[in-house]
Design a protein around this nucleic acid. Structure first.
Lengths: 214, 214
DNA sequence: TAGATTGTTAATCGATTAACAATC
DNA sequence: TAGATTGTTAATCGATTAACAATC
């Protein structure tokens, strides 16, 4: 059962559909309308939804409220996840205050930093602990997800401790390729690489422009 | 000429190779070594590099210094880009202070917010201006890239102004699908969706575990 | 020469798109 | 019934992997 492998792109889009549906004020909606709302093709929308069931009616479309409920179920948005945040530099601090996580059920239950000036600081009623206490606290709080916002030089070390403490998934913001046990899920967000990609494409289109101009 | 389309995944990996090469302390390196350093296959490394030229020597590998130089050239890392940052909430403020952008040639040359308590604030010698002055200032500073860190409700509006002001590429952190002229490059970073993807996979593997346990 | 490693081609894999029968 | 739209299959597209001749 459940042999079908679902592409991660599909999950990312399902998340977008779900968010889009909370914005629209309609009772029925077609795959074409959802598609234009989130900038994908309508076939894509139907294909993505079909992985999880038949939520629509031919000739009619989808019931917004109903579909919304299904998507929330699929994404597990009712669930609560305990998250540990390590590294309270600029980015870490911003994430610690970010409401978007909370809204989707991701609760930061512990925070750590090595810098004495940060230790003891309280954000959203959570106190920042010194890094050496990580393993103990993460384990005690039953933390499923770890978020790494430390510099590259210590990121692997922090990841190792997280894994030892029983974390099941890591979201890594340090621009380095971490090595973790294959059971531990790992996702990387590289802020700079996004700008680099834009810059590359900009230079590319500048080149094309200059070719066309001659 | 230059008809070959280069996958954006290749550019992202080239950026990783480039960063990895600045970390290692070797004169020669093989595709296998680069591959294990950034967690991809060695065939992938060779394929990616082959899009841009023959940088290696059969039987030997790549000259680190030489390859490093080539990759920097490919990514256009010598270039300087003028960036405008709009929205100085938690995330925007963190990005404004982020050294990683500067290191790779992305210079924030203007910042905007609608909140009077933020206007006039100075970060990295750059003053925060009121949003109504966006179009004028962005144009005057010859800004190529805009970064959107405002709430969903105003993100499209801000994007429209950026485009009017002549911005060529937008990096969008608001979780909404922006509509822009097709000439304008757009990239989205959704912080929450990354956690949702991890959560989905966690639930999936929990399901598998519970099947295996019976 | 023997061993190592590239550059490249062909095979594989996976995801998107097009098209249309089913059906509301 | 006629028009609209889903769910699904087959075709297409694109990216990754495997394999190996070229060659240092």
């Amino acid at each position: 059962m459940k042999t079908l492998k679902i592409p991660k792109e599909t999950i990312i889009r399902i998340s977008k559909y779900s968010r889009y549906l909370t914005e629209v004020d309609l009772t029925k909606i077609s795959s074409t309308d959802i598609a234009s709302g989130v900038s994908v093709s309508s076939a894509q929308v139907r294909k993505d939804l079909a992985y999880f069931g038949n939520f629509g009616s031919r000739g009619i479309g989808y019931d917004v409220k109903d579909l919304r409920r299904h998507l929330i179920k699929i994404l597990g948005l009712g669930d609560i996840w305990n998250v540990s945040l390590v590294g309270l530099g600029n980015l870490g601090l911003a994430l610690s205050k970010y409401q978007g996580f909370l809204e989707r059920g991701f609760i930061i239950t512990s925070m750590f930093d090595i810098d004495p000036s940060k230790i003891g600081m309280v954000v959203n009623e959570i106190e920042v602990f010194p890094t050496p206490q990580m393993e103990e606290v993460i384990r005690k709080k039953n933390t499923q997800i770890g978020v790494i916002c430390v510099p590259v030089s210590v990121a692997q070390e922090i990841a190792d401790v997280m894994v030892r403490a029983g974390v099941k998934a890591i979201l890594n913001f340090a621009p380095v390729s971490l090595k973790v046990l294959s059971e531990v899920l790992l996702r990387n967000v590289d802020l700079v690489v996004n700008l680099e990609l834009l810059a590359f494409n900009l230079r590319e289109s500048e080149l094309i422009d200059s070719f066309m101009c001659r």
